[in-house]
């Protein structure tokens, strides 16, 4: 019996060593490209570092004090929250509804799927050029408004403080809805048709089938997509803003992501940008925690 126990222990050790050997490349990769950069960001946020070719000086939390006292940071923080609160739920819930429609297999569903997925296939530069033209003072949107006699509603959409951020958010939503819908439709197509047929017999309409059957069944998947859209929106907004508004007018389209880019590559303050990076990281963690709690399956 003792011998058997020793043998089991040896086997476990051997299995453990094998697992370690096989997982070592992944562990090294993760440590090199995930953990190290994370600690680098934390360290660099405590430095005063002008540019990549200049020398650094350690200033500790003075850099945090400076950043947190800067109104531009709080403006960017506020804009980021607004962008997340409006864009992410809108694109995922509308995407969900569109996905439900796709699962009904309407006429031309294949074409519709392609159309829905098109924004995901467009490069950011192409999207930016398209929307720059649409939102320009003499662009498509104002042209349409003028053509129907709504001249008073025309605006310099990307250059007006009151509309610039919402224009960016609208582009986010446009880009995200179709993509989310196509992915959710894949999940929802796995739901047994018998469930829907039974619901129909009980008198359920589309609205109830959508929210009482499709949504609970795909809630985990929906939560996962919600989290991904949250992270993409929070961390990747810099590029679109760089191409369309560069944070302006004023600071109305500064987001944390853009502020991080701007301070590192234009503003000659890498230390500042890394404080923004840490803030964004914390916001991302909090958001992930909140989303997990919200969409955690009750089953």
């Amino acid at each position: 019996m003792v011998l058997a126990a020793v043998t089991r222990s040896k086997r476990r050790k051997r299995n453990g060593s094998g697992l370690l050997i096989f997982s070592l490349p992944a562990v090294i990769w993760f440590a090199t490209f995930m953990i190290y950069p994370l600690f680098s960001m934390l360290y660099l946020s405590l430095t005063d570092w002008r540019s990549l070719i200049s020398s650094q000086s350690f200033v500790g939390f003075a850099q945090y004090a400076k950043v947190f006292a800067d109104p531009i940071f709080w403006s960017a923080f506020q804009n980021t929250l607004l962008q997340l609160v409006i864009a992410v739920p809108t694109m995922t819930f509308l995407g969900f509804m569109l996905a439900y429609y796709l699962t009904l297999k309407p006429v031309g569903v294949t074409l519709l799927r392609i159309v829905c997925f098109t924004p995901a296939l467009m490069s950011l530069s192409a999207k930016s050029i398209m929307f720059f033209g649409a939102f320009a003072p003499d662009g498509l949107i104002n042209g349409l408004l003028r053509s129907v006699g709504l001249d008073s509603l025309t605006n310099a959409w990307l250059a007006s403080e009151s509309t610039a951020l919402y224009s960016i958010i609208a582009i986010d939503i446009w880009s995200g809805i179709g993509f989310t819908a196509v992915l959710l439709a894949v999940r929802m197509s796995g739901i047994s048709p018998e469930i829907f047929e039974a619901a129909e017999i009980d008198g359920a309409g589309h609205w109830r089938k959508m929210w009482r059957i499709s949504y609970p069944v795909s809630k985990d998947y929906f939560g996962g997509l919600f989290m991904l859209q949250f992270l993409w929106t929070a961390f990747n907004s810099a590029a679109l803003i760089l191409l369309l508004t560069r944070g302006g007018p004023g600071t109305s389209t500064y987001t944390l992501s853009y502020l991080m880019y701007s301070k590192a590559f234009v503003g000659q303050s890498i230390g500042y940008s890394q404080v923004v990076g840490v803030s964004l990281f914390v916001l991302g963690l909090f958001g992930m925690w909140a989303i997990r709690r919200t969409f955690r399956s009750v089953v």
Binding site: G247, G248, P249, S252
Partner: peptide, 17 residues
């Protein structure tokens, strides 16, 4: 200062509004 000039564009656009 070089760290300022590009960021000024957004602020100045307010003056043209």
């Amino acid at each position: 200062p070089g760290a300022v000039i590009n960021a000024l564009n957004g602020a100045v656009s307010l003056a043209f509004t």
